[in-house]
Amino acid sequence: MGTRGQWLCLWCGPAFLLLFGIGFWGCAGFVPPIAPSLGAADVAAYYQSHTTGIRLGMAIAMGGAGLIAPWVALITVLMLRIRGNSPALAYTQLGAGCGGIVLLILPTLIWEITAFRPDRDPQLTLLLNDMGWIMIIVPFTLATVQCLALAAAILLDKAETPVFPRWSGYFNVWIALLFVPGAVAVFFKTGPFAWNGIFPWWIPFASFGTWFVVMFAVLHRILRRQSLAVPAVPA
């Protein structure tokens, strides 16, 4: 069995991070987020002065988000290799991961809509802006379930040489918990628990990036080992 396809899937992870970073951060200037404390006039002014950047940036970010699909598929395939484990966990990870993509694409589309007619009634712009931010920050559950399913599969691997290193299971439990505080963002418009505060935004934002970087290293090692082990002749 050739592993080229798997290597391709692996590199989709960093490619996603790069494209999403360029679009979301570089073009749209959404890092740090538009403050939830801003009034309608200020929010509308932001969309009016950053119209092109947001339109272009969201298109790039949305394009990048699709690349999570092959990345999630790669993790699923490697999870299915864990012997003596029900495939249910791998499929949970697959389903939650793909659902997560939708939760990244939907907010980018809503921001596209917001920037489509930036001269509309500022109250409507405010509403759309709220929708985009709350949609990307509050629903932690898919990311958490995805990480926990992966963690459970890794920790239940009883093989002498497990497919994933065991520490990466504990790492995923940790990351899974870090997304949860996003849910409280609906209660606050200022301070550390608002959607631009440290708990719903900065910590999940950092752990999202960290997850990709660490999992890239883990997957890379698994693929390299298996490339060495698998004979060149197709089985």
Binding site: P165, W167, G169, Y170, F171, W174, P192, I203
Partner: peptide, 20 residues
């Protein structure tokens, strides 16, 4: 050994919360 990834990670996040 692996559980220390979780323990130290969690302790760091709580330290951050205490600080803020």
């Amino acid at each position: 050994t692996g559980i220390w990834v979780f323990v130290l990670g969690d302790m760091s996040v709580f330290a951050l919360m205490f600080g803020t």
